[in-house]
Design a protein around this nucleic acid. Structure first.
Lengths: 343, 343
DNA sequence: TTGTAAGCGTTATCAC
DNA sequence: GTGATAACGCTTACAA
């Protein structure tokens, strides 16, 4: 149906292989024939067929994107579109396309990955999350299929190229900041316990407390899934504590959750930051727009995606280079939801 | 490298074509050989190579997704992840994969689409937007390449399969609702003027006013890009009007924008809904979480995506069926940002 | 019911 | 420098 390399060859009066070489800009072809062939391609409106090329090359120039099993929740979070933009930009620069694994649950997604990989649909895969035990990761690793991960691998840190923030340090600094503001009763509302990022941040939080000789309280550590309802439940739990044990500050895993927290506190007649300080993670667009504007740790989500694409493409094109770890800087953006403890 | 159909054939002691037929579940193959071949496939861990299959079939089982040129803005909006979920679910049901067109601006995206289409990477395309003049649409139409659009086509409505809300009606009902609440000075803050959805909603708004014999005021109609800053600018402009001309109600194109509006009004010391009623479109997660919770027109974004996938796949698989139009229902969710006009 | 062989549109290895 | 020709892994007439 479409114009093929053969049509161009005939039209330019050369062999198909010559046309192929012109496309690849092979230096052994004379400028003259190059011109001639290019003219023919323009004339006929030729576009190379990626599928045929992929088959011959054993390479597709496509990157597969894997979201966590609970993709509905994940998609809702502003993290997703931003990281996607980063991935897209990184891929585009190197002429790679992005393909999404579809599926409602873990099982479907796992099968989707296997199909993609074994089916030769993609040259590499980006895992947009890091979980504690992950079949997909194990599968990819066992097959030695090129992949990178956004987040810190739970195992084999040195054998998996990954792009991450220093979440331990970020949480530690955040906690220290609150301690400097005079807070000692600091709650930690983390995300899912089997997400590595949660674990890392919890450790950072605990590290800061220990260093400041502040006792840790079990009741201050809560885990909720990354959604606003989570935030609400957590607040209620904390606010049921006797007044003298209630936290004066809270570190929240995610801005969206923090929004829920803010709302719930508002309903309970507790003011932020007067009665309680809030600081969350991600610094998405909305964090500026809440009332009060949220203090939030900016983790450079776009950069995370961008670096992930670049690193994956490097792994695909130079598989023998060593695994690497890219740390994207974070910084605490202080707005109005956090401040000195009231006396 | 990988296990191919030939390996399976040898192992099962049949011809490659037989294996192929077993995969396709061709009824002319005896149950016995089917069993034998399947056993061999399991034994060897065979997975069909999609690329080769695509080349032979001239079909990829991949759907291309096209975002508007200003994809950074588009991605930020919660509309995107939700419609993506819908698309993903619809595609998954029919075993199609999703591929994203990458590119920062209109030009790059256009080129991306051409590459995708001519390169045979996708069997069809979903346009996630509808613009007034759109090169990409014209290109696809001219080539008679299967595509569907989310939104109402500006031209050729009967010759383009599309999935849309009845935006005219939705805006009309919304305006009528405000009129019933006693409002007459109703502002309309729309999105980009070259988006068809904006045009449609504006018409609905105007239709309702006319029907109620309310004079239209130029100053009440504003166009802003779909972002929160837009909302803020718009409010300032409206609030500079002399008190007796200030609108008592506003229809806002998008929840995110409405959030900006809400914030700005708050800063100006204007209360919602006491001083001014606000109602917006999309009903995304956050609309419940604002203070006050936003009244919002739910346009069933997920459904929009889901139906788009399904319709596209139908077009791909049955290209001779007539073009169709799918209207996804909307409904007005009344929360606390809108109410009776104060006396 | 199953096997043979051509073809899908490229690239790459030879020759010349 | 350029042209045949054989892959790449699968599907699908056409034969048997």
């Amino acid at each position: 149906m479409s114009i093929t390399i053969k049509d161009v060859a005939k039209y330019a009066d050369v062999a198909p292989s010559t046309v192929s070489r012109v496309i690849a800009n092979n230096p052994r072809i004379s400028e003259k024939t190059k011109e001639k062939v290019r003219a023919a391609m323009d004339e006929l409106g030729y576009h190379p067929n990626f599928i045929a090329r992929s088959l011959a090359n054993q390479s597709t120039q496509v990157i597969g994107l894997v979201t966590p099993g609970s993709s509905d929740v994940f998609f809702q979070n502003p993290f997703f579109p931003t990281v996607l933009r980063g991935l897209s930009e990184g891929a585009h620069e190197k002429q790679y396309a992005l393909q999404l694994v579809t599926g409602q649950n873990e099982e479907e997604i796992y099968n989707g990955v296997v199909q993609m990989v074994q089916g030769g649909r993609v040259d590499g895969v980006v895992l947009l999350y890091s979980k504690v035990e992950d079949r997909i990761l194990i599968y990819l690793r066992d097959r030695k299929f090129p992949f990178v991960m956004i987040g810190k691998p739970f195992n084999f840190v040195d054998e998996i190229t990954h792009v991450d923030n220093d979440n331990f340090q970020a949480a530690k600094e955040t906690t220290e900041y609150l301690i400097e503001m005079g807070h000692e009763r600091i709650a930690f509302i983390g995300g899912d316990k089997d997400l590595v990022v949660t674990v890392e941040r919890l450790l950072g939080y605990q590290g800061a407390l220990k260093q400041a000789d502040i006792d840790q309280k079990e009741e201050y550590i809560l885990h909720q899934s990354f959604l606003r309802e989570g935030g609400q439940d957590a607040v209620c739990e904390l606010m049921e504590l006797p007044l003298e044990f209630r936290p004066t500050a809270m570190i929240v895993a995610d801005d969206l959750m923090a929004l829920g927290v803010l709302n719930t506190l508002n309903e309970l007649g507790i003011s932020v930051p007067e009665d309680i300080s809030i600081i969350s993670f991600n610094n998405v667009l909305m964090s500026e727009m809440s009332r009060p504007p949220l203090s939030s740790v900016d983790i450079n989500i776009f950069e995370l995606g961008y670096e992930a694409s670049k690193s994956l493409i490097q792994r695909i094109e130079k598989p023998d280079e060593p695994f690497k770890r890219v740390i994207v800087p974070h910084n605490i953006v202080k707005r109005f939801s956090s401040g000195f403890i009231k006396l």
